[in-house]
Amino acid sequence: MSGEASPRIRRVATGLGLSAACLLFAAAGGLLSPGDWLRAAQSKTIFPVVVLAGAILCGLLIAAGAARNSDTPFATAGLLKAVGIGALAAIYAIALPRVGFLIATTALSVLLPVLLGYRNIVAIAAFTIAILALVWLVFIRLMNVPLPL
């Protein structure tokens, strides 16, 4: 995958995407029902309503071309790789307290370099042992962080 999306389409998608995300956030959070927030500035929801309304407006302005001068090249190359490694990092973070830090950290320390095409097994093994020792010594032994082994 390589190449660039058209700047105009990208701009419209970015702006409308931001507005839609904020609208969805407000709806899911129960801010769209005209309840107490219209009554007084002291309402608990008036602040997020104002803030999200501002963000929705910004999204529409971006879609209309107000941020045209800030267009950045949006290369699609490497996009899948980035999302894949991001997902790996997310799985590691979620697995860490459930599977235990020894298994999760060993798996990540081996998988991430291998997925990036790094094949120096000795360096990977040495790094894995070093990072396990560092985390165990500093966080678990010295700081008493209750990280499951």
């Binding site: 320390s109 370099p113 790094y118 990072i131």
Partner: peptide
Amino acid sequence: EPLLLAGVVV
């Protein structure tokens, strides 16, 4: 770099 990135995540 691959090892550094793994270290950052950990």
